[in-house]
Design a protein around this nucleic acid. Sequence first.
RNA 1: GGGCGCGUAGCUCAAUUGGCAGAGCAAGUGACUCUUAAUCACUAGGUUGAAGGUUCGAUUCCUUCCGCGCUCACCA
Length: 501
Amino acid sequence: MSLEDELLKQRLCRIREIQALGYRPYGGRFDITHAIPEILAGFGAKTADELVPQVGVRIAGRVMTKRLMGKAGFAHLQQNGERLQIYVKRDAVGERDFELFQILDHGDIVGVEGYLFRTRTGELSVHAEKLEFLSKTLLAMPEKWHGLEDVETRYRQRYLDLIANPEVRKVFVTRARIIASLRRQLESRGFVEVETPMMQPIYGGAAARPFVTHHNTLDIDLYLRIAPELYLKRLVVGGLERVYEINRNFRNEGLSKKNNPEFTMLEFYQAYTDYQGLMDFSAELLEQVCRDVTGSAEVEFEGHKLDFSRFRRYSMREAVMEFWEGPNRPRPEEVCHPDWLLHHSDKLTPGEALTDIFERHAEAKLIQPTIIYDYPVESSPLSKNKPEDPAFVERFEIYAAGMEVGNAYTELNDPQEQRRRFEMQLAMRDRGDEEAHQMDGDYVRALAYGMPPTGGEGIGIDRITMIFTGSRTIRDVILFPLLRPEGPIDLIDRLREYDQP
RNA sequence: GGGCGCGUAGCUCAAUUGGCAGAGCAAGUGACUCUUAAUCACUAGGUUGAAGGUUCGAUUCCUUCCGCGCUCACCA
């Protein structure tokens, strides 16, 4: 019999002992007067004298440590990532509660009624007068000193990660604050939050391979969306002139430190502005997120201090010249010249070559928050051309920590030009490009009713969360990142074996 | 999908050139009414990810498979 098996049997026995003492092993409602973090915040600075007269409290939490010394003992209860000590003395709680305390295991969840005091060593603690049992753990907690290190277990059993590693909880609280900051800022500027289809008959708005699913009643294949873009712009046509969505996109592509197949995007559209207007707005938006989350306009990421109060701005051509690696740094006339571009890339068109060169030379060096603007038309079928240079579009991307975190452009609102762009994409698709856009007839029809001049932008929530939480991998900012399925969980068989009604 | 690396007790980690698989925490028993990584004494716990091979002998070397990580490709 394995040790784990032995432990499970012991714990199942404990359930009967708990019942024999008159407690429910999986208890019910327990009204608390304070959450543990509230007690620490409200009373953490009070001296022993200031805790007189007695401050009565009812608290609840998970037993994380326990020190039993004959007829008294201490334990730390954890709630919402913070710990408070309780002192349980037989003379104070009575025989029955003390017997319960003696058989508590690490990981059990209990309620405690008592009063606040300071121990001889000065730690704020609850002097217990009554215990209630709330929930039994059947499995061993991770090691109390080192926590849970195994990355696979951390991702597969995130609940254990959250119990054992308080800093993990902070990452996800910060993620929620980032999203709240964005919502607050957008709402204050009159943006309306909407939800558009996740399941789409035609996928568009980005270049990516989709996931396919099937609807039985209609007997049609549907795609999980790769972007909400084309639906949000339909709404701008309909008069929702400031509109946004924060939701999941799905792309059937490889996994990496920066990519998870499902990820969260903010997309917003604002009528009557253009990409220049959005550059200023983006810088304000992200600086405010940084201030809301860190308290300043700077955040530390892998040894760099990223300053969100000063966005740098380069055109893509300027960036190639500025960040060129090696000798023969190109001159302005070279980065504009098709022959030079095609000579320095194996791509087939000057525009694709410029993008390729930019990605190879510059992208990883864009550590400080940076805006790169003016993209070649080839990779941007939904953006408006630059009037003075139709080979380029009014588009920019936001980089920070060497990652692309945002993408924005002046929206193409000419239906005739949009039809031509879609047909170019169809030609690329015929040549085998799976990621080329499909023709979206209804989207062109919507544009044909007239869409106001509009700027639109997408910001990768997971990636900015990485930056604002100092996370090296996207898996550390997604609660349940995609892993290969685990196979049968043998706990189920063992529970069945030991099941006694 | 390619390359490289890792997988040892529930958890965190050791194990010399291929030579009896170990420690701390967690668990069990006992002592202890201000401890805090509680302490002290004793006890138990392993198909070294799986299968095969080389060898007198494999955690260690080889092959295949499984899982994870890094990286490249794909992709923002």
